[in-house]
Amino acid sequence: MTAPADQLAPAASGVREVRSVRLPGGRREPLALFMARVALPLLLLVLLVVFSLLRPATFFTLDNLGTVLTLQAVLGVLALGLLLPLIVGELDLSVAANLGLGVILVTGLTSQQRLPLVVAIVVAAVVCTLVGVVNGLLVTKVGINSFIVTIGMSTVIGGLVSAYTQGNVFYDGIPPALVTIGQGRLLGVPLPVVYAVVLAIVVWYVLSHTPVGRYLYAIGGSREAARLSGVPVRGLTLAAFAGAGLLAGVAGIVQAGILGSGNPTVGPPLLLPAYAAAFLGATAIQPGVFNVWGTIIAVVTIQVGTTGLALVGAPFWIEPVFTGLALILAVATARYLRGEAL
């Protein structure tokens, strides 16, 4: 054989040359996968730059930044909770109604029943967690599809909230301390943003750095494989629903503080944005996997986009169109890039 080895080698190895990038830490990964990871953060960056250039006096100011983030902190906390059932492969459609329940309990118990704020907060958090526990029990013990269980639960909560409020908004007798919880600042940072960041770090730590996080992902990947590997599938599925309930309750308490009133209609409209954030977030950082930082970036990106559009004078209907298109485009792009990478 006289053919030079360097001519034969590529054909003989049969491996397609994939362009790759080096990550910090020395690992390499395919370029397409890397692009999928950073596509959403890049979009966020582009939006920030474009809107700052278009409206330098209003958009890129600390005040506006604070407003943008505060508006979405509650949604961020709600989406963090929603991640837990999504990761184990279940749906929870009751999180937004549960958030509304939290708002009504903390405002109603203080203004109508005259309970101390601390008691009202604890009761609201416990009741919202129990809603998650009941969801979890119906899914794991009774074996009902989580879609059905949580749609039913969402409807029931809506009815009970109506019964308690009689359709009224609680304005009077809201404790000032509750308003401080929602509107205060720590070193200039709005408190709701602080809560969201702290909770994101906690959830991220549990999901990425503890055995429980691995078990949750393993359950979502293959329930049977997880069970045969000794993972307590039922208990952790139940815990995922309970966690979603608790975080919905916390989001509700913060929302009540931001609004300074108890409005029975405040929860349910957050359901689809929370799902959009979780799914959009699953296209970034760890493409194809529900993850904390992707979700947080998604929440911020949507808000930056819609706020920026409002500031440049886009008509009101641009906002939902932007959100919907961003979701579909991001998922499609991530899917395409991931397909390239595998």
């Binding site: 691995r214 992902y217 393993a218 049977e224 590997s229 996997v289």
Partner: peptide
């Protein structure tokens, strides 16, 4: 036991699968 229908979590990496259920801390 190595099960017929592989008891492997599809989205996790190799080390995670090897240690699934008895992670080192």
């Amino acid at each position: 036991t190595v099960y017929q229908h592989l008891a492997i979590a599809p989205a996790r990496d190799i080390a995670a699968n090897l240690y699934l259920g008895r992670e080192l801390r």
